[in-house]
Amino acid sequence: MKILVPLKRVADPDNANKVKVNAGKIETTGLEWKPNPFDEYAVETALRLTENGANPKARLGEVIVVTFGPKETETTLRGALATGADKAIRIDATDEQLDGDVVARALKALIEKEKPDLVLAGKQAVDGDSNQVGQLLAEYLGWPQATFAGTIKSEDDKALVVGREVDGGTINLKVTLPAVVTVDLRIVAPTSVSSKHSPAHKYPEGVRFAALMAIMAAKKKPLTEIKLADLVSDAALKITYTGFELPPARKAGIKVTSVPELVEKLKSEAKAL
């Protein structure tokens, strides 16, 4: 199976409480860049789906990782290559040239050349929290989609059974490839992804780490650059961000010393009962 995974770098989500706004813009200096966690889960999912249990060194298929950004975003791609992806593509662009729609249109053009069987994407990037590129891309390609995947089972490489995590439960879909699947966090639980080629062992929780040897080897894996303008002729953005602000701070709370005091406060002060 040939799988394409779009990958975005984001300001370290674990430091999101340090987000600063300066003159209506997000201040990015001093923030550490990391791959979007949901995209890392998508890479891990792609690696599991192409795993060859009988011969772990020979992947069954190909995993292509793609990012949009300036030269320094290649660090993110090299990271994915080190964990096992086969090749990488950087679409040269600045943040100001991009919105979810441009990204989806550019990916569509790229996919028509690369012809993957499956696009695996994170359900959302944890900076913009937009949750739209996978669905838009599927629409533009005329492909089916399965969003918020918590489980994926591949039986014959032609179709996937996907468990989608939705409000109040799980929806199971069978989707015929080619298709777009966006992944949620439980996709990296030990038994969430399986195919008939899966290894006998269970996976550890979470995404795999790159070994030092693999990091060295990743430097030799193919990484190509494509100009954004070579993929999209219409550069118009559909959404314009005009400003950012911090949320209003919550009024400082108090500590109560006993359960009766808590109940009294809830009743007479907060009037929440």
Partner: peptide
């Protein structure tokens, strides 16, 4: 129409407009 939406897990709010 001018929209407000939470970004960065609600640690900031963005103001945006749609151009279509």
């Amino acid at each position: 129409l001018v929209y407000k939406r939470p970004v960065f897990a609600g640690n900031a709010y963005a103001t945006c407009t749609i151009n279509t």
